[in-house]
Design a protein around this nucleic acid. Sequence first.
RNA 1: ACGACCGUAGCUCAGUUGGUUAGAGCACUACCUUGACAUGGUAGGGGUCGGUGGUUCGAAUCCACUCGGUCGUACCA
Length: 969
Amino acid sequence: MEKTFQPRDVEQRWYQLWEQRGYFAPASENPKTANSAGDPFCIMIPPPNVTGSLHMGHAFQHTIMDALTRYQRMNGKNTLWQVGTDHAGIATQMVVERKLAAESNQSRHDLGRDAFIDKIWEWKESSGGTITQQMRRLGNSVDWPSERFTMDDGFYAGVQQAFIQLHEQGLIYRGKRLVNWDPKLQTAISDLEVENKDSKGSMWHIRYPLADGAKTADGKDYLIVATTRPETLLGDTGVAVNAKDPRYKDLIGKFITLPLINRRIPIIGDDHADMEKGTGCVKITPAHDFNDYEVGKRNKLSLINILSRDGMIRSIAEVFDCEGNVSTDYDNQLPEQYAGLERFAARKAVVADIDALGLLDDVKAHDLSVPYGDRSNVVIEPMLTDQWYVDAKTLAKPAIEAVEDGSVKFVPKQYENMYFSWMREIQDWCISRQLWWGHRIPAWYDEEGNVYVGFDENNVREKHSLASEIKLTQDDDVLDTWFSSALWTFGTLGWPEITERLKTFHPTSVLVTGFDIIFFWVARMMMMTMHFMKDENGKPQVPFETVYVTGLIRDEAGQKMSKSKGNVLDPLDMIDGISLEALLEKRTGNMMQPHLQEKIGKRTQKEFPEGIAAHGTDALRFTLAALASTGRDINWDMNRLEGYRNFCNKIWNAARYVLMNIEGQECAADNSQNYQLSLADKWIISQLQKTETAIRKHFDEYRFDLASQALYDFIWNEYCDWYLELSKPILADPNASTELQIGTRRTLARVLEATLRLAHPIMPFITEEIWQSIAPYAGINVSSDKDNGEEHSIMLQAYPTPDASKIDIEAVADIEWVQAVVIAVRNIRGEMNISPALALPVYFSNVSSQDQSRIESCGQLIQALAKVESLTCLKVGDEKPASATQLVGELEIMVPLAGFIDKDAELARLDKEIAKLDKEIGRLAGKLGNSGFVAKAPADVVAKEQQKLADAEDAKRRLQTQQQQLDEL
RNA sequence: ACGACCGUAGCUCAGUUGGUUAGAGCACUACCUUGACAUGGUAGGGGUCGGUGGUUCGAAUCCACUCGGUCGUACCA
């Protein structure tokens, strides 16, 4: 074995082997294991965006999913980790558009829809594999042969089926509504994709002249409305006042002459107008504001759309009545000076013209939050368009109940509130998008505008008995990407076909995802799945039983990782390492905002002056697991990664030690040899059982941080620090019995072997690599026997199960005593600055019979671990040498001064010890002196405290005696 | 404005239903190349658990208020 662990050498070798041998497939589909396949366990991957590459958040979630999958696979479950990618409508379309523009200076319109979609597929074939390769590097045990893509034929058919069925059931409808419109991408987006940003703007107060000579109560011939978007006045169809407002209530039913355009619009009474707020008068623009839209509907106001789809002022407005039908109630001519003006330029022009007319009453600075498209980063415009909607309220009902009654559980639980709050106020879901890349809406229109829904044109004609001469055209729009990913859990398993997999693995077991997509994805999967999937009794099936919600991975300063901040870390760079030059290129090359380049470069240089060292996949995974306390964001810490890389090396070297000592030696692998277990053997075996219990519990409770901690603690602080050291004196002792040495070798091998299995779900590679060498010494045959098809991998071994009968309480107590004595001697050595090379004579006094027998049975261990030259027990009455003293319970441990201990140093050390005890005694005495405590605290607690006080007082007394004696010398 | 979460050692984080002297890793100090490992060993230093008040015999833990931070939702004529 190499002296240090070299992850690069082992990782890919094992991954390829696992994949080739089909170890990731469900046991039920492997002829060798089909009969013994246990209960199903299934995780659906949140499909990564096909345009993307894996970031630290993926690495984190994938580590958790893989750990769960491997853990359950080793527990004998029939496991499936279903993999796939999402077509990511807008994102992918934008990537390919940009590429097209860069390469041939063409737009997608130059190319045409079909040719453009071909381009996307080409691009997907050539670059869509990035993620899957990265997942292989992370060791993810996903079932590759069944990988799905949301635009695959089978999945596509499922999406169409879902749409058609929902439409037939009246749960999908088409309507003219206000939507969030992205003028740059020219599509509707959902309000979840809108990001509200605070900004400083103005509030313009505008005079609206009253028509027909009407006057306000105080004699004015105008009303004042306030607005942050003055250009929308071109679309005003009313002014609202509160019907209770004494200032204006008499004006209700009268009219305003809209400035600039001389449109005669009614004054209406509506509660939307708040008497306390502003002037009490509100301009109503139903086609360009969500609140006004509702007011308009209530008051039967017309809708006037003044904007084109790209956010320019139209020359001719679109006028509709309150039902959305084309109307001639108003003149559709808009002032020509604004025609074709971009909306923000129009704002300026309108304000200037109003001012010129003397109608600008006031302008005030105003803080407001402005909606931006999260992809396009332009201001979103409420826009009146025809769109398809899902009746979300109906679908949400059972989905809410499933969480209420515990059919679906969130971990941590508090996310259920977030889910409820959204689901209970859910609005109908706009599912059409004006894009080319996606699932095209399976709806056709005849020339009268009648809609027919079906799988394809023929199917539609047949279904509706349409003559072949009737011309049909398919809807141009595609479905929201989340519509298809809402079908993910059952669509990937073959639905609408009822496949074996669907029957076996649905509902799935656990969903691992970020809190940021609970609304986007989790809630929608709940709605769709429960609508389409029913069990044999017709009861809706949930998509998954548990939702494990992860936090975000942030940088070390708690900042979100983003390209524009230049603080993004690539998980593969943690694994393989990267030079500073390459990292700089990665962070600053090909930037959308070149002006940030210098800042990011400097920051990177400062943070990683040497680049990043290679740490290996196992260290990365262990770090992520160790930081995964539930539901909390993680501030990434390179130092922890380094610490856990060292941990990998520690395991490696422990294995090296074990192999060095068992190779070519008898270790009772097949139990054909007699062996005897030492106290140390029994102790480490006991500790192993406890660790197994703890780690299983932690996995079952999704506490990967605690599982990692328990593993780390056992391997480093028990197995390496103590057990390996305890094994040395036995193996090195020429007088030790053969049986005892065999027992030690056997324990070295078997405990390590079990520990590797314990660690495997988190650290798959290093455990497999070592396991292959160690397992034969633990009685496991690992050679591939092609004839009977036997193949061995730690992946397919059983997860360790604790055996309470192997816990030897006495051995544990004995070794803990040994540890205490060894630490006592080491403490003296350390505090007295005695060279570790120097073997010390040690005296014991106040020796109980139990101490006596322990000294006899374990003296050799103490000598070896504390570097002690001789052990001498003093009898009662024997004169104690002048020495440095430590206490282990009643037992006094002494290292004589002669030769190596400075008297003053020892006196000072005793002072320190006594001061510590004094503090303790004071605290305990105070507590026990409190009558309330003694009277009310449980008896065992009081007794415990009393014992502690007595022990501390006794220890103090003896240290003081010691101090006195020393002082008198 | 409302809600959720967070605030524990220099840094990143644990701390189970209230009950040893509040833990870990990294960093720090001293000593050490000892035959698994210097990506290491041994010993040590470091925290009034954001603040105030309360409940309790006892509070990092429960309650109220408060300060700071993150996120979400709402409002924004």
